[in-house]
Amino acid sequence: MRGMIDEITAALGANGLILRGGFLFPDDEGGPDGASGEPAKSVLLVGQAGAAPWPHFLRWRGQQPQAIADPLDTWSREVIGEVAQEFGARVVSPSDKPYLPFQQWAVRAEGLRPSPLGILMHPQYGLWHAYRGALLFEDEITLPEFRETIHLCDTCVDKPCLKSCPVAAYSTDGFAYQACLAHVRGANGEPCRAGGCLDRNACPYGAQYRYPPEVQAFHMAAFAGP
């Protein structure tokens, strides 16, 4: 089994992706359908740390029609799907409908907890990581259990992530989506459009994994819409 995990890791790494842990579905829970339609017994999460997939995505993007919808989701589904086919798994994505509980799966797979921004805080990557898909297996695929780590937000006294947004989009009351969207689209939203969320960038953890400005601008453009 260790050999298979190593092979999956290598296959994902060819596109800058990484294995983000996994777990077995309990018998009384049952998983989503696997590749053949039988309930999956195991799930392995796939994602990224920092912006490692970006160059691979850009090369692919340059070969696609300009009008393609949701290009990053499409690329992720395609490259993870190739790995799924090679290893007899079914690929699912966070954007698939009906939505699957990816955030809950991530908590179970890696033991992470949400930051005040809602993004899961990673002990190494900070807020600069993402989940791009998952591999569902109808066999039991086991990984070493995660080690319990400190939740970095518990050690952060100043909480700069709640003080840097000019419209206070994030607070202890949650995310003010409409206020954020209006600001990003408005005349004063250029810093956010060009360099990403100011609250997220204010977090001191995982700074070496921070997405470059062009990557953050890409995600912000997707958030803001046409």
Rank of each mutant, 00 (worst) to 15 (best):
Thr172Ser: 12
Pro116Gln: 05
Thr9Phe: 00
Ala187Phe: 05
Ala217Gly: 04
Gly3Met: 08
Ala51Pro: 03
Asp70Arg: 14
Trp105Asp: 06
Gln124Leu: 13
Ala89Asp: 03
Met1Trp: 08
Leu112Gly: 06
Phe87Ala: 06
Gly196Ala: 09
Asn188Ala: 15
Ala84Pro: 00
Glu29Met: 12
Gln178Ile: 07
Gly195Ile: 01
Met4Trp: 10
Leu58Gln: 14
Cys153Gln: 08
Leu135Tyr: 10
Trp60Ser: 01
Val91Met: 13
Leu120Glu: 03
Thr74Ile: 03
Trp128Ser: 05
Thr155Cys: 11
Lys41Pro: 00
Arg200Glu: 04
Leu112Arg: 13
Pro101Leu: 10
Gln104Pro: 00
Glu138Pro: 05
Leu181Pro: 02
Arg77Pro: 00
Ala11Arg: 13
Leu181Gly: 03
Gly47Asp: 01
Ala130Glu: 07
Gln85Phe: 02
Phe223Pro: 00
Glu82Trp: 06
Leu24Gln: 08
Pro53Asp: 11
Ala106Lys: 00
Pro101Thr: 10
Gly118Met: 05
Gly22Leu: 06
Gly81Asn: 07
Pro116Asn: 07
Leu162Pro: 07
Gly126Met: 02
Val92Glu: 06
Ala14Lys: 15
Cys165Lys: 05
Gln178Pro: 00
Ser164Gly: 04
Leu19Ile: 01
Pro204His: 06
His219Phe: 15
Arg108Trp: 07
Thr149His: 13
Asn201Ala: 13
Gln178Ser: 12
Ala69Arg: 14
His219Ile: 00
Pro53Asn: 12
Leu152Asp: 03
Ala168Trp: 08
Pro94Ile: 11
Phe218Lys: 00
Cys197His: 04
Ser164Ile: 03
Ala52His: 10
Ile119His: 07
Cys192Gln: 02
Arg2Leu: 10
Leu117Arg: 08
Ile150Arg: 14
Thr155Ser: 14
Val79Arg: 14
Trp54Cys: 03
Ala69Lys: 14
Asp33Trp: 01
Arg61Met: 00
Cys153Glu: 10
Ala89Gly: 05
Tyr205Leu: 03
Ser76Gln: 10
Ala187Tyr: 02
Lys41Ala: 12
His129Asp: 05
Gln124Glu: 15
Lys97Ala: 13
Gln63Glu: 15
Ala169Pro: 01
Ala176Lys: 14
Leu12His: 09
His122Ser: 05
Cys197Asp: 12
Tyr99Arg: 15
Pro191Trp: 08
Leu12Ala: 09
Tyr211Asp: 02
Ala222Cys: 06
Glu29Gln: 14
Ile5Asp: 01
Glu190Ala: 15
Leu17Gln: 07
Ala168Met: 11
Pro212Gln: 08
Pro32Cys: 09
His56Lys: 09
Pro144Ser: 09
